[in-house]
Nucleic acid binder design. Structure first.
Lengths: 72, 72
DNA sequence: TCGAAAAGTGCTTTTTGCTGCACTTTACAA
DNA sequence: TTGTAAAGTGCAGCAAAAAGCACTTTTCGA
């Protein structure tokens, strides 16, 4: 999952919940400026930032094994 | 998935592949110091760092909806 | 069409992640 | 036990993320 995809999922999720950036910023504890930057495709958020946003949106950051069945 | 879990998954994955921190650092392009810090449970990696490590280990960072069936 | 809400952007400061270096500690095989 | 490889840690510099502020642009309903 590429960064862009992740950004888009967050943005899409926020929109599907009908929440403004400002509200999400308050709910998540992430600064509005940071959120804006992030949703407009720029930036390289820290895991913590991503998780704060995820928590507020009912999203979860996970790390999974790629290509099951093709591993050592 | 909490930060600790993510750290542990990365570490466990590296070990299961029998790769040293030093080798992973070279393969992933992440500095050894950063990797060490990260595997010992400290730090708050950026998405990019996490993805570099994931790429080298065959892991993928994803963002998924929690509690399927309980959404808007 | 117009006005307000929402979103996007430039600039700046503060904080902190990334990195290199040197050293210590731990694990393990000879 | 001892030597070596691997892993962990303190310190410091640099780059970049986080955040605040002000302003512009876009969106959209009245």
């Amino acid at each position: 999952m590429h960064s862009r995809e992740i950004f888009n999922i967050v943005k899409a999720r926020r929109e599907s919940l009908n929440v403004t950036q400002e509200t999400l910023a308050q709910l998540s504890g992430v600064a509005l400026r940071t959120l804006k930057q992030f949703e407009s495709g720029k930036g390289n958020p820290t895991l913590q930032t991503l998780q704060k946003l995820g928590d507020a949106l009912g999203l979860e950051v996970t790390v999974v094994i790629k290509n099951k069945g093709n591993n050592v």
